[in-house]
Design a protein around this nucleic acid. Structure first.
Lengths: 122, 122
DNA sequence: ATAATACGCAACACAACGGTTGCACATAAC
DNA sequence: GTTATGTGCAACCGTTGTGTTGCGTATTAT
């Protein structure tokens, strides 16, 4: 275990949670998680390329990509007749903060629960 | 930063991602995040208690709690005329694994992207 | 016994989500 | 110039999610 920052001074906790919602929503889909994973290779990929192997239409993939984009996880860029997508590292790092924050919250909960049990068993 | 475990041997990645979906879906709501936070105190809370301060009806809260329950994050228990809810620590730890997994994936993506840039700038 | 509290169930409304199809348009490729 | 490829746009549809209201039932308090 051991998590340092994130849950520390719980000042901005409230605000962070609301900010985290769109991120979690974006991650709540298997197709989108796959897209993110493919983009994690570091290679920019076009919509058609990203549609290969998926069982849904290109249009569906396009929508998923924009969904990820709205959450700030990916960006796109025109390249000839193609539209290529990349991870947005800056925002991604911020999003990671949300994950860490929630994880830290759960760690603290675990500690508190253990304390509860110990006190009860006294 | 620096993250060690969690994403380590990325063998079960595919499987984990699908398992993670319901968890992320459960976290993709401000009300549910608040409920989780309140339950993180370690104290078992009834539906009525958890409804206090929220701007939606008790029924809405009930549904949110069951949504969290379906994702395996919380459990409930009958106590007289009340139904009290707790965090499900065991499952919670597993869910934390999902968060760490995704976070680790992003870290690796960052490294790959840096490598990409360096190679391009040669 | 009566009243207050805590909850369960069911029906309903509405918006959001995920996916599809059909077609138009722009850019490469030949 | 023609053809093939990659996208964009819009309409449409079924499902799921979120919230409500109304009412019934169980438990606790007085």
């Amino acid at each position: 275990m051991s998590r340092s920052a994130a849950g520390g001074a719980g000042g901005a906790a409230q605000l962070r949670e609301t900010e985290a919602v769109p991120v979690f929503a974006a991650l709540a889909d298997a197709t989108r998680l796959r897209l993110l994973r493919r983009l994690s290779s570091g290679e920019s990929l076009s919509i058609s390329r990203l549609s290969e192997g998926e069982r849904v239409t290109r249009q569906a993939i396009t929508r998923h990509l924009y969904a990820l984009g709205r959450a700030g996880l990916v960006r796109h860029q025109r390249k000839g007749r193609e539209q290529v997508w990349d991870l947005d590292l800056k925002r991604l790092e911020k999003a990671r903060g949300y994950l860490d924050h929630v994880a830290a919250q759960w760690d603290q909960a675990a500690l508190r629960l253990k304390a509860f049990v110990e006190e009860t068993e006294k």
